[in-house]
Nucleic acid binder design. Structure first.
Lengths: 183, 183
DNA sequence: TACCGCATGTAAACGGTTACATGATTAC
DNA sequence: GTAATCATGTAACCGTTTACATGCGGTA
């Protein structure tokens, strides 16, 4: 059960899309920082070094005039195997929205049944939270607690709608690329 | 700009609701763990000790037979002042959903204009994310990225609907207690 | 017998941020 | 002149989790 995704594993997954430098990864993650955490360089570069030492990635150093050389990292065969091992194991039942989103971003590394399983797991978890919250709602609660609970319920319902929609398309034989609902 | 809420400040805020023991706080936070992080005892107890040393809370030790004594913490006058100082300062523009929810849970410590300001800030931030995402959507993106973005957009829209609703009620003169939308 | 709930606490380990260093180029 | 973009990296610091210690009562 992998509850927290270490940035090590996550950036390894990102490198399946294309070879990237640390700076590239940072820029990409910054564009998604409203959904997931964007690591600082202070954790990003050491993570890349660790992956390199474990043989999960390789580097190609591209010198530039008047600038430090770009170091382009590529995932290796061993890296892909290691990623598969991790990405296939089930999400923890208390996984946060961010943790789920990090896995979703790596959807390209999933087979269709695995993608369906990921979405179904999230559906079960969110509907479980909702059910338990509805039961607890009866009790007298403080203003702030009720506000936060109401907010959370609204978000959870939106999640379930999206998941139903996506799972519906997948079950009707849609290829993963057609799962995305138009905004 | 307080982006991250330290558990110190947060549990200080929780103590405005009622005096509680560390164990009580943990149980309450566990019930909300699908929305916000529930700290471990290893950070909860030291946080309580620190608040005590700073004079922001007081303890009342209640002995029990065959069990370690319960230590009930209460917020002091200084504690309330310190909390007010913190809770009034604006949220960081990159605040996460969790960070916002933590503030919302402490809504009872806010005046009505301050509550309105908190909701309006969240509204601006979320609609800003949405706008920027729509602009970036045009570009060719990977399956996982589009899935995650679609998911995030769905959640963000649900947030805006809830915020519009709550702000609408507040502007029509509803007291904070009536702001909660029926589920 | 073994585990869960109650109830507190500490120390080591871990993962991350912050702040620094380097240095050229372009823009306000 | 000051800041931002590009591009890499290190070290100190900080908050949190994990794992441990203690100990009784109820339950499966």
């Amino acid at each position: 059960m992998a509850n927290t995704i270490s940035i090590r594993q996550f950036i390894l997954g990102l490198l399946t899309r294309q070879p990237m430098s640390g700076y590239d990864i940072k820029c990409f993650l910054n564009s998604l920082s409203w959904l997931i955490d964007s690591p600082s360089f202070g954790s990003l570069y050491p993570a890349l070094h660790a992956l390199l030492e474990d043989g999960l990635v390789t580097v190609q150093v591209i010198p530039q005039q008047d600038k430090p050389p770009r170091k382009i990292y590529s995932i290796t065969g061993v890296g892909r195997e290691t990623l598969q091992e991790w990405v296939r194991q089930p999400v923890a039942s208390d996984a946060s929205l961010k943790a789920f989103l990090m896995r979703l971003i790596l959807a390209s590394n999933l087979s269709r049944p695995d993608l369906v399983a990921l979405l179904e797991q999230r559906h079960m978890q969110v509907s479980g939270h909702l059910r338990r919250t509805a039961e607890a709602m009866e009790e007298d609660a403080d203003l702030g607690e009720r506000l936060a609970l109401g907010y959370g319920v609204a978000v959870a319902n939106a999640e379930l709608l999206w998941l139903d929609d996506a799972l519906g398309r997948l079950s009707q034989g849609a290829v993963p690329a057609e799962v995305i609902r138009q905004v």
